[in-house]
Computed example of a mutant assay.
Amino acid sequence: MNGKQGVAVLVAGDVGDDPAGTAATAVATHTAAADPLQDRAYADGKFATIAVATNLSGDVAQLDTFVPDCLARVAAIEQGTAFPQALNVDGNAQITNGSLTVTDLTKGYRFKVDGSVLDMEATSKDLIVSVWPGTGFNGTQHSYEQYAADALAAQHAGKREWADGLYGTVRHTLDGATNPPVFSARRLSAGKPSPAHGRTARPTSLLLPRSQRSGSSTIRRHLDVGAWP
């Protein structure tokens, strides 16, 4: 058999096979090798670059530090103990079950939803309400209202119009530049006839101090415009 005569003893080489234990030895050697397929060094150089954010360099083993650090940073943002340097949102954004505070840590706004009403609040400095005509907060800024931080006081600038609806017919006008308190006397009247004359009583100006509400022909002319026959 296989060129042997008499009582033949076959070995692995007689049939083209490996000696016993060869496969086990090969597997053990492969497992113990640092880079048995010569692909780990290649992968380290390629995939670590894909995983890099801004400061990761070297091989993928550094991900063991980088990934936990990322998770810790995200957790800090979610818990409100860390602040992103900037935030841009493309699309709708929603804050649920909490208030929105915009602050530089010395002054700020707060849009508050807890409680039974909605609050828009400012802290530390006066609150100015203004509008820009441009698309990027540019052009001539129009400032309409100022709410004092240190007193219960407010100022309103420009022309004020009272209409029957937004962008509708104007019924009353108050212009800070020209200063005429032009209100309809009939509309401001309480509508109660005078006992002596049976006429609707003249209204008192709501825009002047009590000491100036009578005795002035200028005031009377403003109150009488278009209201008395």
Rank of each mutant, 00 (worst) to 15 (best):
residue 192 K to A: 09
residue 70 C to P: 00
residue 205 S to Q: 00
residue 84 P to G: 01
residue 220 R to V: 04
residue 1 M to C: 12
residue 174 L to I: 12
residue 19 P to K: 14
residue 19 P to A: 14
residue 156 H to K: 12
residue 142 H to E: 15
residue 50 I to L: 15
residue 60 V to L: 09
residue 11 V to S: 11
residue 46 K to S: 08
residue 9 V to P: 00
residue 109 Y to S: 15
residue 42 Y to I: 11
residue 165 G to D: 07
residue 10 L to T: 03
residue 108 G to W: 01
residue 197 H to A: 08
residue 181 P to F: 00
residue 216 S to P: 01
residue 139 G to M: 04
residue 163 A to Y: 00
residue 100 L to R: 09
residue 27 V to G: 03
residue 191 G to L: 08
residue 73 R to N: 15
residue 140 T to E: 09
residue 1 M to T: 12
residue 123 T to F: 10
residue 192 K to M: 14
residue 226 G to C: 06
residue 229 P to Q: 13
residue 135 T to I: 15
residue 45 G to M: 06
residue 205 S to I: 00
residue 118 L to A: 15
residue 45 G to I: 04
residue 169 T to K: 15
residue 219 I to F: 02
residue 123 T to D: 14
residue 216 S to A: 04
residue 62 Q to D: 02
residue 72 A to W: 01
residue 114 D to F: 12
residue 39 D to C: 09
residue 121 E to R: 14
residue 145 E to C: 06
residue 42 Y to H: 09
residue 9 V to K: 13
residue 225 V to Y: 14
residue 105 L to G: 04
residue 64 D to Y: 01
residue 93 A to T: 06
residue 201 A to H: 08
residue 137 F to A: 08
residue 219 I to S: 02
residue 164 D to I: 12
residue 219 I to N: 04
residue 211 S to P: 00
residue 131 V to K: 14
residue 114 D to V: 09
residue 88 N to W: 02
residue 47 F to W: 11
residue 165 G to P: 00
residue 139 G to L: 04
residue 27 V to Y: 12
residue 138 N to W: 01
residue 156 H to T: 06
residue 189 S to Q: 07
residue 48 A to P: 01
residue 208 L to E: 03
residue 15 V to Y: 08
residue 96 T to A: 13
residue 228 W to L: 10
residue 34 A to P: 10
residue 60 V to E: 03
residue 86 A to Q: 09
residue 186 R to M: 14
residue 51 A to Y: 12
residue 6 G to I: 02
residue 35 D to R: 12
residue 11 V to Y: 11
residue 51 A to M: 08
residue 89 V to Y: 03
residue 36 P to C: 05
residue 24 A to N: 08
residue 15 V to D: 01
residue 117 V to G: 03
residue 53 A to D: 13
residue 218 T to A: 12
residue 151 A to F: 02
residue 111 F to N: 04
residue 173 T to H: 10
residue 76 A to C: 01
residue 95 I to F: 15
residue 144 Y to G: 11
residue 107 K to I: 01
residue 147 Y to F: 10
residue 48 A to N: 11
residue 217 S to H: 10
residue 218 T to S: 14
residue 228 W to Q: 06
residue 32 A to E: 11
residue 73 R to T: 14
residue 98 G to P: 05
residue 38 Q to S: 07
residue 73 R to S: 14
residue 108 G to F: 02
residue 196 A to W: 06
residue 92 N to M: 08
residue 186 R to K: 09
residue 52 V to P: 00
residue 186 R to F: 15
residue 53 A to S: 12
residue 125 K to W: 06
residue 117 V to S: 15
residue 32 A to Y: 02
residue 158 G to H: 11
residue 54 T to K: 15
residue 139 G to V: 14
residue 164 D to Y: 01
residue 72 A to M: 06
residue 172 H to P: 00
residue 208 L to Q: 02
residue 42 Y to F: 08
residue 3 G to S: 03
residue 179 N to H: 14
residue 22 T to L: 13
residue 177 A to H: 13
residue 120 M to Q: 11
residue 123 T to M: 07
residue 104 D to T: 05
residue 103 T to M: 02
residue 149 A to G: 04
residue 26 A to V: 09
residue 169 T to L: 10
residue 119 D to K: 12
residue 31 T to N: 14
residue 137 F to S: 13
residue 118 L to S: 11
residue 153 A to H: 11
residue 106 T to S: 10
residue 84 P to V: 05
residue 183 F to G: 02
residue 103 T to R: 03
residue 69 D to T: 10
residue 133 P to E: 04
residue 187 R to T: 08
residue 196 A to R: 13
residue 212 Q to V: 00
residue 71 L to R: 10
residue 26 A to R: 14
residue 149 A to D: 15
